[in-house]
């Protein structure tokens, strides 16, 4: 992740297309990036499939959490198109419902992290001075830290000790919010650095000076003039970070510290995979492939957006 971040930070400001004609040009450039288009299609199909999960469940007459201990490790059949897992649950349905969780966690976390990063980057770049120095030291420190062990610690924290009622503290839903929160807490750094870089350059633009000379306040300038013109690096970095976040969520869930059963996520479907590897290697195969495909698709999509939004920058 840190390599990606450093590279991204060095790409600097990109300019955004200005209007419909420019937007069409941008779109044309995006279409040229074949892998990105393929990724967009793949992600679209994936989103449609997971959105339609209840339809599949209805058609099969099953619930993803239905346990059927008499029917464990069943091979693919008409009733269970991809077979069943160690508790006799339908693998296809769990993949679809797990995909909902993984995708939503990835997107929501990326948006929150992007938001945090945007605000931090804007303030650092716009005000400069000691605030900038402080914020960037914090950013660099977060980038440098061994993130996974820290995430594990934060994921292991007993929320009951933070004053949450016990049943809420351990509920599966809480595990969902917790994972979003802690990953967002460390995932904002790329966007922060990019937005800071963009802000440093945009704040010297004459239209910003014009706004200052009219008496516009700092917030108006930051959010009204600088942010809208810095949107393309934000889009690119946020898209790229979805992949990283899905990877983090999956590893935490795999380790049993992320999304808690019975809510399925691609990561926690691999929970027992290691113990079951001799009995049912296929169970380990599907979720991993889906994580891999989703992440690589977001990465290609980010690359494609970068090329399309910023033709001048060094490609990829």
């Amino acid at each position: 992740m840190s390599i990606r971040e450093v590279m991204a930070a060095e790409d600097g400001v990109e300019t955004m297309p200005r209007h419909e004609s420019m937007a069409r040009l941008t779109f044309a450039r995006f279409l040229e990036h074949r892998m990105a288009v393929a990724s967009a299609v793949l992600l679209f199909v994936l989103v449609v499939l997971v959105a339609a999960a209840p339809l599949f469940a209805g058609a099969l007459g099953l619930d993803p959490n239905d346990v059927d201990l008499l029917n464990r490790f069943a091979p693919p059949s008409a009733d269970h198109p991809l077979g069943t897992d160690e508790l006799g649950r339908d693998v296809l349905l769990r993949l679809l419902y797990g995909g909902r969780v993984s995708l939503i966690v990835g997107l929501v976390t990326a948006l929150i992290a992007g938001l945090i990063g945007t605000v931090i980057g804007l303030f650092a770049g716009y005000f400069g001075g000691w605030l900038d120095a402080l914020l960037m030291r914090i950013t660099d420190s977060v980038i440098a830290l061994p993130l996974l062990p820290l995430l594990i610690v934060m994921a292991a924290v007993d929320l009951g000790k933070l004053g949450l009622p016990p049943d809420l503290a351990t509920s599966p839903e809480t595990s969902l919010y917790r994972i979003v929160l802690i990953i967002a807490l460390v995932g904002w750094t790329t966007v922060a650095r990019l937005v800071r870089g963009a802000t440093l350059s945009l704040r010297e633009r004459e239209y910003v000076l014009a706004a200052v000379s009219q008496g516009a306040g700092s917030l108006r300038i930051m959010f009204g003039h600088i942010l809208p013109n810095a949107i393309s690096p934000i889009i690119v970095a946020t898209t790229l970070s979805v992949g990283t976040i899905i990877l983090l969520e999956s590893v935490l869930s795999f380790l049993g510290l992320g999304i808690q059963p019975p809510i399925a996520s691609w990561g926690n479907m691999l929970n027992n995979a290691q113990e079951l590897i001799y009995e049912a290697p296929a169970l380990a195969f599907y979720p991993g492939v889906l994580i891999f495909l989703t992440v690589i698709a977001f990465n290609f999509l980010g690359d494609g957006l970068q090329d399309a939004l910023d033709p001048k920058a060094l490609r990829r």
Partner: peptide, 18 residues
């Protein structure tokens, strides 16, 4: 290279074991 970046390490390890 992108494939390498995108692969979950724990899953890669799992597949290597398999």
């Amino acid at each position: 290279a992108l494939a390498g970046i995108s692969i979950p390490v724990f899953w890669l390890a799992l597949m290597l074991i398999v």
